[in-house]
Amino acid sequence: MSELSGEHFRKLTQQIYLRLGLHFEDKKAYFLQKRVEKRMAALNYTDPQEYVFHLCYADPDGREMQALANLITTNETYMFREYEQLEAFANCCLPEVLSAKQSRGEQSLRIWSAGCSSGEEAYTLAIILQEVFPQAQYWNCEIVASDVDENMLAQAARARYWARSVRDVPTSYLEKYLVREDDSYTVRPSTAALVRIEHLNLHDRMAMRAMRNFDFIFCRNVLIYFDDRSRKTVVDHFYNSLNRGGYIFLGHSESVGRISSAFQLRRVEGHLVYAKE
């Protein structure tokens, strides 16, 4: 099979970034090469140049980009996924927002896990919140976990996970916030109570307008499956849903700035985060 040249790699990664918001570093060249080979074989191309052209200029409806996206993204979700990004949230963004609220005499905090799938992210945020801010129990704190898939929401509501889903949970947290039963782990009720499960279609603009007053929105590795227009519409809604001073987190390789210029970019512990000012 033909090799991607540096030029092909640059064009492909540029196009993937432009259309999906996913950033690929040089060290991912082999990974991308293998996925592109699969797509080239499916389309009967032998020269990467042909495939690059197809993707850049002959894919107006985005079908090929979506087919490639399905190969280069992972549907797997687990607790404490993208740990470093969560560290930036826990160490900097969350304390900053809490401190601002305390100085204003407010005692409420709202976090939205949008496209929560089976709930791992929402419970991760609940654990972090209790760990960073033990006073959370005296505040009106709420983590809204929303998804369009009722089956996923039912799983989220059970708050019960297999070992694979909790493999990145620090050991001390595992004991403190989850209960082991045979091969599964269940989030303790005191932590699970912070999470409210809600059915929501991110494309339902009227329902989205009702989602207000959030301090943080997490929508990680969800928008990559949307087309450009839907992605923009959803992020515009997120802007309205956030309080001033609030933060939005997409997946670590996704970029808010590519979708909307309404948010302010900040660097926190080496991570780029986006805030509504």
Binding site: S2, E3, S5, G6, E7, D47, P48, Q49
Partner: peptide, 14 residues
């Protein structure tokens, strides 16, 4: 270096 390696890679693909 990079343009030359790209060219050699493309030529070997063909």
């Amino acid at each position: 270096e990079a343009p030359a390696l790209n060219a050699l890679t493309s030529l070997r693909n063909r």
